[in-house]
Each structure stands twice: as structure tokens, then as C-alpha cells.
């Protein structure tokens, strides 16, 4: 059989990621809306809590991550909405692009978007909740990165399957959020110890949990995604 030069898995994943970035850039109005959605969530939390600075500061990590969680549902849903228009996902698979490359590309594409979003939210959180970023900035960035990957890895699989279900907008958070409970606990607590005192040095354990969560879901998703994306 005549086989053209085959594109290796990681290269293909990188191409998928670039394609998603390219589409995000071309539809940046939608991206802007997503950013403002997350920002207004932060704002709403501070309104709901009232002007109690201490409470706001204490709960800031939780608000930050909830804002990211809500925004992630929108970005993950969007990630497969563009693929279901004109059956583009099938087009990719028939190109042919390995489904696993699509999984990796989309997970890291979505994670980079959420990570970028979290960086934008930080200064706003400083302004609204009076938090201090300078205590452990390196660890904080790591927590945000690991958390973004952790949302995206199971999120991409769930988004792929719920894209075809009825009531898909409800389906995605219904499937995704319960699974993300450990990630929420780990990232909120890790963020808390990055922002405030960490008397018992608990940050490393939460970071380990975050890393383990990411690795587990990256590998499970990597194995499952071909069964999800393709008919069998």
C-alpha cells in the first residue's frame, strides 16, 4: 500500500493543539466572553459574601477554583462543539489523525486556555479579595497548571461523549463535577497554602495528589479516547 510520510503521535497532537489555538484566536470574541464570564463569577462571589474582607481572603482559593470550574464547562463544551459542526472530528479521524493524538492535543489545548484564564483571574482576585501572591509564586503557578490539566483530562473525554447526547449542556457538568471533587479539594487547599501560612508544610502532599490525579486521568483518558471518538 502506498503510505505517505506518517505524522508521529506527538507531532499530530501538537498540530491538533495548534489548530485549537488557531480557532480560539479566530473566534476571540467568544474567548473574551469566556474571560468576562469567569471575572464576573469572581465578582459575584464577593457580592454574595458581603464586604467581610477576612472571610473573602480566607475563601479566595475556593472562589478562584469555582470560577475556573464554571468557565471550564464552557470551554470544554466549545472544544467539541467546533468538532461536531460539519462532523469535523470524523474528518480529522479519517484524515487520518490518531484519536489519541486528538485527545492529547485537546487536553493540553484546553489546559493552556484555562491556565491562561487563571493567570488573568489572579490580579482580579487580588483586587477583590485582598490576597497576597508573593508568598510562593512558583508553587502557585504550578498548582494552577496542574489544576488546569486535571480539569481538562477527564473533561475532554466527558465533553466528547456528551457532545452527542441530548441536553448536552447539562450533561457535561453532571458527569464531570463529581469526578473533579478530589481535584477541587487538592487545588483549593494547595492554593490556600500558597497564599497563606502553611504551618504543617502540607503543600507538598496536595501537590502530590494533584500530580497523581493528572497522571491517572491522562493515562485513563489516553486509553479510553479511541473507543469514545470512533465508532467500533
Amino acid at each position: 500500500m502506498s503510505v505517505g510520510p506518517r505524522v508521529p503521535l506527538l507531532k499530530a497532537a501538537w498540530l491538533v493543539l495548534l489548530k485549537d489555538w488557531q480557532i480560539e484566536w479566530r473566534t476571540r470574541a467568544r474567548l473574551t466572553a469566556l474571560i468576562f464570564f469567569a471575572l464576573s463569577t469572581l465578582l459575584l462571589f464577593s457580592f454574595a459574601m458581603g464586604p467581610d474582607t477576612d472571610a473573602l481572603r480566607r475563601h479566595a482559593p475556593g472562589y478562584l477554583w469555582l470560577a475556573l470550574f464554571f468557565a471550564s464547562v464552557l470551554s470544554l463544551g466549545e472544544s467539541f462543539r467546533i468538532e461536531s459542526e460539519n462532523q469535523a472530528l470524523l474528518g480529522l479521524i479519517l484524515n487520518p489523525v490518531e484519536p489519541r493524538a486528538i485527545f492529547l492535543g485537546k487536553v493540553f489545548g484546553n489546559a493552556s486556555l484555562l491556565f491562561g484564564l487563571s493567570l488573568l483571574l489572579l490580579p482580579v482576585a487580588v483586587a477583590l479579595y485582598d490576597i497576597e501572591l508573593s508568598k510562593a509564586p512558583g508553587s502557585l503557578l504550578l498548582v494552577l497548571l496542574l489544576g488546569s490539566i486535571g480539569i481538562s483530562a477527564p473533561g475532554i473525554v466527558y465533553s466528547a461523549i456528551s457532545a452527542n447526547a441530548r441536553a448536552r449542556d447539562v450533561m457535561l457538568p453532571l458527569l464531570l463535577f463529581p469526578v473533579l471533587v478530589p481535584l477541587l479539594l487538592a487545588s483549593v487547599n494547595a492554593t490556600r497554602f500558597c497564599l497563606g501560612p502553611d504551618a504543617q508544610n502540607q503543600l507538598p502532599s496536595w501537590l502530590k495528589l494533584l500530580t497523581a490525579f493528572d497522571l491517572i486521568y491522562l493515562s485513563v483518558g489516553f486509553l479510553l479516547f479511541p473507543k469514545v471518538a470512533e465508532e467500533d
Binding site: I23, E85, L94
Partner: peptide, 22 residues
Amino acid sequence: KRELLRHDVALLSHASYLYEDL
């Protein structure tokens, strides 16, 4: 042999497989 065959088979279908935003 789906991976192998996909290099040699092309389908022009009702669905265009195009990305609307590109």
C-alpha cells in the same frame, strides 16, 4: 486495518468536515 486504509480511502460526503471558523 482502519489506520492503514484511511491513508488510501477518501470520502466526499454531505458533511464537509470543514472547520467553520478557519
